[in-house]
């Protein structure tokens, strides 16, 4: 069974016809993806079993589900770090490994390299891709500025606070100008206040330009609804819910929780995650 994204009925149901999705360019497609991990000695563990999911270009999708439901596994497939044991994944119509130049990747742990200053960490991806020094420096400075860390360019990672580190990671991701952002609980390690400010910075960046495709894993249902166009729930190895978030943009993060629609979607999804 393939689940198509739907909208909660009422107030104004702008449900789309099933065939319509095909006409949109696909950024990421999971086709009947299954994953069985072999465990040392024990029985093989089936984690995913027939995940079908298509992400349109420019769409912001949040992936939620219980711990161990296979969200990180799906992201790793998009990044070409693991291959599905059945089915296939394509990114921009190609094999994930070949689509890496389109990808920005961000994790809960910032993974800053401790021997590089904040600026040189932002430059890192560009350096790996062979961008000349002068150019990557100016790009990196631009994005450090965008996350309000221009004053910290020379500091070593250990001299930065958690929130600052994660913003450096954000700048590093953005500096590559990725078509697709793949993020695994990127703000989970932050305390609530810092998280809100980094989230807002992130939404502002995303809303300020032509939308990049985002696949965003989170444990925080509120975060998923506040940020995304669409929330996908993974459970029992497959997609159990695929819901449009019909709340207009631009969104203001702290205020969105007061929106009635937010509350409805929240309650509905909570029921689906179980």
């Amino acid at each position: 069974m393939t689940m198509t994204p739907h909208t909660l009925p009422a107030p104004a149901d702008a449900g789309r016809a099933p065939g319509e999705a095909r006409e949109i360019d696909e950024a990421i497609a999971f086709n009947g993806v299954g994953m069985t991990y072999s465990t040392n000695g024990g029985r093989p563990r089936q984690v995913l079993d027939g995940v079908d999911l298509r992400l349109a270009r420019g769409e912001f999708t949040a992936l939620v589900g219980r711990s161990g439901s296979g969200k990180t596994t799906l992201l790793n497939m998009v990044a070409g770090l693991v291959d599905p044991t059945s089915g296939s994944v394509t990114v921009m119509g190609r094999r994930p490994r070949d689509a890496r130049p389109h990808l920005g990747f961000m994790l809960a742990r910032d993974a800053l390299l401790p021997w590089r200053s904040a600026l040189r960490n932002v430059e890192y991806g560009l350096e790996l891709r062979g961008v000349p020094k002068a150019e990557r420096r100016s790009v990196a400075l631009h994005w450090l500025d965008a996350v309000h860390l221009r004053h910290a360019e020379r500091l070593w990672p250990w001299q930065l606070s958690q929130g600052m580190r994660q913003r450096v990671a954000l700048a590093r991701t953005w500096a590559l100008d990725p078509d697709i952002l793949v993020m695994d609980e990127p703000f989970a390690a932050l305390d609530m206040n810092t998280r809100q400010s980094v989230q807002q910075r992130f939404v502002d960046l995303w809303q300020s330009e032509e939308h990049r495709t985002v696949l965003f894993v989170t444990h925080d249902l509120g975060e998923a609804i506040a940020l995304a166009d669409r929330v996908v729930v993974i459970g029992g190895g497959r997609v159990v819910e695929d819901l449009k978030v019909d709340i207009e943009r631009p969104r203001d993060l702290p205020l969105i929780t007061l929106n009635r629609r937010y509350e409805e979607i929240y309650q509905h999804l909570r029921g689906r995650i179980g």
């Binding site: 990044a79 993974a111 991806g125 790996l128």
Partner: peptide
Amino acid sequence: TDAEWLRLSTVLGAGKRQLFVKVLIP
């Protein structure tokens, strides 16, 4: 070496030689 650094570097486009020079050696 932290596995996370290797994962990230790989996704950012690092080849074997770059992983060696830019991660393992430092």
